[in-house]
């Protein structure tokens, strides 16, 4: 207690020292980050928005304000339309597939005690692996003539499939690699969500007549995983929207633009053809989709808290 009584004096002294300097210290400590934030993120992003209303091409002496013309061109550009629909297709396939599989795997891993850490590590491995290199490995696995996948299928009498080289199969193949790449992420997030569910709820549900595992899943696990699921959907969606590495490494949008995706088209237009203004407009569309997703997530989170 005596110490407690003695405390106020030095505290006040420190307080005045702070009073003089706290505002200045705050500014000084935050200044480098603030400057970098404007210079490297917010400024260039604003510039990008501006560029999307111009006809600028790299190397051109001047640029002209053309309003919404780039966006108008996008609506009629067949390559962009393929890229947009492919990206949405990719998101629409990879999300449900990796969430369904991921939840199943998380439930299985959490359903016992043996080898938990091992399985978690195995499923998570693709998340940390260099995707370009692993895409190259997939290219070998899926090779039409020497690939082990076609060899295996051949053993059960299925004719060789040109996985990455035919316009019918290229998107399914990229989606497959996408699920492989994102699955571990989903598993880990669901495992965290599952451990957070109080065990007593399962006992209570059982007392209330939820005898089967399926009933307990329907009544306890699934509703309580609601917030986790929403979070996983948003994150996976944003990761999927950014699909680029596998396309660049394996198909470059081919064959015949059949695997164009938003970021790849943006990359081509901007950094291969140097049509900066047009590429900027594609980037704005990409950003718009990301923002809409995040907005939807916040809206749902605000509206229903837990047991919706």
């Amino acid at each position: 207690m005596p110490e407690a009584l003695a405390l106020p004096a030095p505290r006040r002294a420190a307080g005045t020292a702070r009073g003089l300097g706290e505002g200045a210290a705050g500014w000084l400590l935050a200044a480098p980050a603030t400057i970098a934030l404007f210079l490297l993120l917010l400024g260039p992003s604003a510039a990008l928005l501006g560029l999307s209303f111009t006809d600028w091409e790299l190397g051109a002496p001047e640029l002209a304000w053309i309003g919404l013309e780039n966006y108008a061109e996008l609506t009629t550009d067949p390559v962009f339309r393929i890229a947009l629909s492919n990206t949405l297709l990719y998101v629409g396939v990879v999300i449900p597939a990796s969430i369904g599989l991921g939840l199943g795997i998380a439930l299985l891993i959490e359903g016992g005690t043996r080898l938990r850490a091992t399985f978690r590590a195995i499923y998570f491995l693709p998340v940390v692996s260099l995707l370009v290199a692993m895409a190259t490995a997939w290219q070998y696995l899926l090779h039409p003539t020497i690939g082990p996948v076609n060899k295996l299928l051949g053993m059960i009498g299925i004719a060789p499939i040109n996985w990455l080289g035919s316009s019918d199969w290229v998107m399914p193949s990229l989606c497959l690699i996408g699920v492989w790449e994102n699955l571990g992420f989903v598993v880990v997030l669901f495992m965290a969500g599952l451990t957070a569910i109080p065990r007593e709820l399962y006992a209570a549900a059982e007392l209330d007549g939820a005898r089967s595992a399926l009933d307990r899943f329907r009544l306890v696990t699934w509703p309580l995983l609601g917030p986790t699921t929403l979070f996983v959907v948003t994150i996976t969606a944003i990761r999927c929207l950014r699909v680029f590495d596998t396309v660049q490494a394996l198909t470059r949008g081919g064959p015949n633009n059949a695997s164009e995706v938003l970021l790849h088209t943006m990359y081509q237009e901007g950094f291969t053809y140097f049509r900066i203004g047009y590429s900027a407009a594609i980037t704005v569309v990409f950003l718009g989709i990301v923002l809409v997703l995040m907005l939807v997530q916040t809206r749902i989170l605000d509206r229903r808290v837990h047991y919706g």
């Binding site: 400024g43 260039p44 990008l48």
Partner: peptide, 8 residues
């Protein structure tokens, strides 16, 4: 996303 400021 960091792809947005990339062009500028």
């Amino acid at each position: 996303p960091y792809h947005v400021p990339a062009l500028p």
